[in-house]
Design a protein around this nucleic acid. Structure first.
Lengths: 337, 337
DNA sequence: GTAATAGTGTCTTTCAGACAGTATGAC
DNA sequence: GTCATACTGTCTGAAAGACACTATTAC
């Protein structure tokens, strides 16, 4: 690995690499400026009314990892294919929906004494969605409940215990420990960041601020709390970003149906939405909301043995894509703290 | 550049590069699998009630480019810093808001006869926002109206002329030219994609589907129409992604204020929102919307010489961040076609 | 005064959210 | 019959959207 001191800050105006390049010896630069690229996916599915995420290998108390792959230009046609192919090769699962999240530098903590001569690396995150029903390979793969890694995000049984009992008191300490220098350097105080992200002091819990909350917990050193499943730090971030994106998008695009079987009852649909977003709507209103907007249509069939009156089966009404600009389960954001 | 045939598809389960690496000779792989990384920004500002984008150099009828930089791990602390530093170095402008868009493989059209020995590359796009007021360096920099590159997106004076006159007829031809094979391979027909993206046949124009529309126009070969300013294809995509992101986010986050001076009249605020989104609201309702939600607060000052009655000046009310989960200019999506 | 822009009051429609109540199965 | 779940009807309050109207400047 050779250093490239000559390439420090320039004031001339270099045009960056054009679309069509022919002279690689000039354009590509020294290898020190080339990066390895990892592609990682948080693939989310629904099992037993729980949002679950596909993991790598088994989780016997060890640090869990998401499926990931090193991108190789000579092998993979695209970044997306790299992670798709990886999951097919390893588990025989073909992903349905896939969507890019963010790209970050790979974190490399400097090791004491050891000279870090690793190549600089990029990490591209993806959100994947998968329907488990009727997919034996997928059902055989290792999944874990998303909320084991982000337990403060699960509001289905009210405010999560871990928040009030463990995290909030320690977060308030963290906020109190802010130095004047830090306060002056940042636009928002630690306390205000807490108020916005964690809805303390009467704010509203914004279910989409998943990544922001993980950032704060990280900064406060609270991620290695005992109640939490361990996961590679960068992968937990990708999972948080995936959950945030899914929560945001489920409201505007018909993404829930990627998780459900083709036919489902309205109550199953509601349970699925609530597994992702938290409890939002009374049953009656949810029905009206989702039927009234033309998002689903009855198949005429019913499901018996529900424990009570048989439930009508519904299917996603694809035509809604042509009718409404942003079809999704339009439940409101924000809830009382 | 050496080939690495041994690295083709594997069925074993390789763990991808861990967080902390020590042995670079094993982990980094051959240089063939390392990528050059470009970082490109669509920096948007407001000038004379027009949304403008910062461009590279002058545009004398040539193909326009956005500011971009090759990421160098030894120079730039982060991807974001790479583009920030670039814009400071070249134009002396310090960006305010910045946000990552998507990461794609750099397009490399194979040249006839020429052996393409370029390194594979990634391109990371960014959206930047800038306030021109009181920023001499920024005012001196070269800007162009965003809608010169995406004229079909400007609905401020009603349905854009270029749509009905030039694009739609040719798009319908394109839709009619769909082969049965293509139809079978894709979930949506060309015609349905048109209906969704371009709101033909009574659909609603979804102002956030900017990238989708550019994709279709590209596929139909319509981007090099004469009425359009030429821009590097990959940069036009980044601009489209930036506009889409800005349109989506302006509704949920107080982003408009990054474009406006600290004090402004409500009409100026409305004009700014409309420059980005298109005409959405009657003046009276816009006032109520934006004042009623506590997004802005009167400073007590007025602006005279407006041509009529003096207008009260307002400023962004930062406290709204603490009160509401998703504060933004909550105008509705979708409009009649 | 007129012209032009700024700003207010109010009506209607829509819809989220909550309530009470009915329907149909398993047992 | 009871119990549990599925489903329907209706009320209320908030807010979107449209309209008519008043206010304050420049000229």
């Amino acid at each position: 690995m050779q250093d490239d001191i000559s390439s420090s800050r320039r004031s001339r105006v270099p045009s960056c690499a054009g679309e069509f390049r022919q002279d690689s010896s000039i354009e590509t630069g020294p290898s020190a400026d080339r990066m390895t690229v990892d592609v990682t996916a948080a693939v989310i599915a629904l099992r037993d009314e729980q949002p679950v995420v596909l993991i790598q290998g088994k989780a016997d108390g060890e640090t869990v990892a998401l499926p990931c792959e090193s991108y190789r230009a000579c092998v993979h046609a695209s970044l997306e294919d790299a992670i798709r192919d990886r999951i097919v090769a390893q588990m025989g699962i073909r992903l349905g929906y896939i969507e890019q999240l963010t790209t970050d530098l790979k974190t490399q903590a400097p090791e004491r004494g050891a000279l870090m001569r690793t190549a600089p690396g990029l990490s591209v995150g993806y959100l994947g969605l998968l329907r488990l029903e009727g997919n034996a390979a997928a059902q055989a793969a290792p999944w874990m409940n998303c909320y084991e890694f982000l337990p403060w995000e699960d509001w289905r049984r009210g405010r999560p215990e871990i928040l009030s009992a463990t995290l909030l008191p320690r977060l308030l300490e963290w906020a109190a420990g802010e130095t004047p220098q830090e306060r002056a350097a940042s636009e928002l105080s630690r306390h205000d960041r807490l108020r916005i992200a964690f809805a303390i002091e009467g704010g509203k819990w914004d279910d989409e601020r998943v990544a922001e909350r993980l950032d704060i917990l990280d900064a406060a050193g609270l991620v290695p709390v005992s109640a939490l499943r361990q996961m590679r730090a960068d992968h937990r971030r990708i999972l948080a970003a995936a959950l945030a994106r899914l929560r945001a998008k489920i409201r505007n695009r018909p993404l829930v149906f990627e998780l459900l079987p083709p036919e489902f009852t309205l109550f199953e649909l509601q349970k699925t939405v609530e597994a992702i977003l938290g409890p939002h709507l009374h049953k009656q209103n949810f029905r009206r909301l989702v039927e009234g907007t033309g998002l689903v249509v009855s198949t005429g069939e019913v499901r018996t043995h529900t424990g009570g009156r048989p439930a009508k089966l519904f299917r996603f009404r694809r035509e809604v894509l042509l009718e409404r600009p942003a079809p999704g389960v339009r439940v409101k954001a924000g809830r009382a703290a």
